[in-house]
Amino acid sequence: MRDTRPVYTKHKPPFTAFVEVNTRELDGGALEWVIAQIENVEIEEVEKHVDGHCYLWMPVEFNEDHRKCYYPSVCGEQALDIISRVGIDVHQHKKRPYSIIEKRHFDATKGDSVEYMKGFNREMVKRPHVPGKYDNKWFARLSVDHGPFGWQEQHFMSDDLKLSAMRCYAHSVHGEKVSIPSIFVEK
């Protein structure tokens, strides 16, 4: 299948100093820049946010496909195109907010409440779960990267699906470290 994505070759921002960073920690303008390099989309800086480290990128040339900013870790349409083309699996860790246990285990100090459960045909205890570090986190991994133990911390984890998937994509191309322009690194 032929790659029909546009390739931009006019001019690049003048970056002179580069620094090596971990691909698992990429976000914001640095992640967008790395993904643009992988996707061969030439972008230019059009706005710097107040903190000086968040950048807004536009493709150098505009056509019908690219009339908006280049933000694949934020823009669902751009991210989903990459996720489906590359083959990235994503999963959100969801946990029921409570456990259902037998009434004899009731402990008011743990926030338990007793309710009649139709499925059990008797009163049961609802015990709230203590939030864990993975609750509501998104995990991403390459489709070919399945291990026998399911989703793990080594897979790319964040609060956002698109961010996890784009970090996974950057890691699949560059490995653990990638060189980015030093303007993206906080002083």
Rank of each mutant, 00 (worst) to 15 (best):
P13D: 12
P59C: 07
R122P: 02
A165I: 03
M1T: 15
T23S: 08
W151K: 11
Y98C: 01
I180R: 10
V60I: 08
K103M: 14
V178E: 02
P14H: 15
Y98H: 06
D135P: 01
A36G: 10
Y116M: 02
E77C: 08
E123F: 05
D89H: 02
F156Q: 03
A108E: 15
F120P: 07
L56V: 15
V60H: 03
F18V: 07
G28S: 09
D51I: 09
R167E: 08
V86C: 04
A30I: 11
E25C: 14
P72M: 02
V185P: 05
N40E: 10
E64W: 13
G175N: 04
F120Q: 11
K10F: 14
V41Y: 07
I183F: 06
D145P: 01
D107M: 04
H91N: 05
D65F: 00
R24K: 10
S182W: 10
T4I: 14
W33Q: 01
G52I: 09
R122N: 09
R104T: 10
G132T: 02
N22V: 08
I183L: 10
E45Q: 03
G119C: 00
D159A: 12
D107H: 06
V19G: 13
V144S: 07
I180F: 11
K48I: 15
D51C: 12
E45H: 05
F156G: 00
K48T: 15
T23Y: 07
G132L: 12
H105F: 11
F149N: 10
E25K: 10
L161Q: 06
M157P: 01
A140G: 00
E20W: 08
C168V: 04
K110M: 06
I100V: 13
G29M: 02
A165G: 01
D65R: 05
K68C: 08
Y71L: 12
C54E: 13
L31W: 06
V60Y: 00
W151D: 11
N121H: 03
V144D: 07
